[in-house]
């Protein structure tokens, strides 16, 4: 097994065709990416597809990946979010590959249903619907900051926007999600208060 001083070195080696470098990134973030996908999709099968899609995209678009603080994780999480928003389109190029990957048979009939119910109990379904009402950049911001613990400034780095813009969009996105989870109609962005309107 090769040794890499940090993730940036492992990723640089991976881009140059070093499988061990890619393995470091894959092993480090597989669970994080899967948990995020599960939260967004509410289904184990879909979450597996989204996870696979994110790592396959990571390799396909390896020369465009934007690292934040020496890590590709934010890029992976944003990619999962984007794929989840339009799953059929985003995963189309991998449809055959995903179908060919083996999966463990459910030991007990209906096990997936029970799992889905558990996930639904955690509001995943409603959250998924709420996220679906956000723009792509808002959904990515919420995913990174609210779910994964990144600061707005770090998330801004991933999305290529200013920290101030990230904070404003995040505030609006959170408000939109609150309304959606409460079952209330969500007005257009222009009618939602911004951080500047209500400084905290």
């Amino acid at each position: 097994m090769g040794w890499f001083p940090d993730e940036a070195a492992a990723w640089a080696a991976a881009v140059d065709g070093d499988a061990e470098g890619f393995a470091v990134v894959f092993d480090r973030y597989l669970d994080r990416v899967y948990r995020h996908a599960l939260r967004l999709s509410g289904s184990r099968h879909d979450a597996e597809d989204l996870t696979a899609g994110a790592f396959l995209e990571l390799w396909r678009r390896r020369r465009q990946v934007r690292m934040v603080d020496g890590s590709v994780l934010p890029w992976l999480l944003v990619t999962v979010t984007n794929l989840a928003r339009n799953r059929a389109r985003g995963l189309r190029r991998y449809r055959r590959l995903l179908a060919s990957l083996p999966r463990t048979e459910s030991i007990h009939p209906g096990a997936d249903d029970i799992l889905d119910q558990q996930i639904a109990a955690g509001s995943a379904k409603r959250l998924q619907q709420a996220l679906g009402q956000l723009s792509a950049s808002q959904a990515a911001l919420v995913s990174l900051v609210s779910f994964e613990g990144y600061t707005p400034a770090q998330a801004a780095g991933v999305l290529g926007i200013t920290p101030a813009a990230a904070r404003t969009r995040l505030h609006r996105a959170r408000r939109r999600i609150e309304l959606a989870l409460a079952g209330e109609p969500t007005p257009p962005d222009g009618l939602l208060p911004s951080l500047e309107d209500h400084p905290t």
Binding site: G17, L30, A47, L56, T104, G122
Partner: peptide, 27 residues
Amino acid sequence: MTNPGIDPTFASALRDRLLTAVAEPPR
């Protein structure tokens, strides 16, 4: 609720496919 992990069979196969692709020469 315990957060279930990814199916190890699926993850292992995915890992193998990816690493094979990484190690292959560019066309």
